[in-house]
């Protein structure tokens, strides 16, 4: 008989479809794994990163597939919106993996109001660690990233913006 810890472990096999170096557990997308008497089954709760995240359906299907691969054919997947996903839930390992792939990880403290006044955080180049960087576009290859360029090594890079 599997327990919740086993299922959390299984779910680490599910890649984030847009950033395959990360899995859905370290992304903070999986919120809960629970046995529910009413369903007489396991329920995995997930939450979208962005309301408009086009990968959500794929993630749900991949989670179902992963559970089925481990013999949990009847398990359910539930999506919740609240509390809202935040980059603060991404694990330290996840941030390190991002950095190694050339994506600047989110600056901590997502509750930043300066943004509204046009104040921007200093973003370090993931390659040469220079602080001399410029934002090229607010929206990068996916909704969760912005496009930056480094003024020292001149490389463009993605920044995983905090929400």
């Amino acid at each position: 008989m599997v327990n919740a810890d086993d299922i959390w472990k299984f779910l680490e096999e599910v890649e984030d479809p847009e950033i395959p170096i990360l899995n859905v557990v370290e992304m903070g997308i999986v919120r809960d794994v629970q046995w529910r008497e009413v369903h007489n089954n396991w329920v995995v709760t997930i939450t979208p990163t962005y309301s408009g995240c086009p990968a959500m359906k794929t993630i749900e299907e991949d989670v179902m597939q992963c559970l089925a691969d481990h013999g949990l054919n009847e398990a359910k997947v539930e999506t919740i919106l609240s509390p809202p996903w935040t980059t603060d839930w991404m694990t330290a390992e996840a941030c390190e993996k991002l950095r190694q792939t050339g994506i600047a990880p989110p600056e901590k403290n997502s509750a930043d109001k300066g943004l509204l006044m046009g104040v921007r955080k200093e973003i370090k180049c993931p390659r040469c660690h220079s602080k001399q960087t410029t934002m090229v576009s607010q929206f990068g290859s996916t909704a969760c990233k912005s496009l930056y360029k480094c003024n020292d090594c001149l490389e463009p890079f993605d920044y995983f913006k905090c929400i």
Partner: peptide, 14 residues
């Protein structure tokens, strides 16, 4: 609506 607002405002800020 409270939860909806908390989620959406993070996106709308950008």
């Amino acid at each position: 609506l409270k939860g909806f607002a908390a989620k959406s405002i993070k996106e709308v800020k950008y």
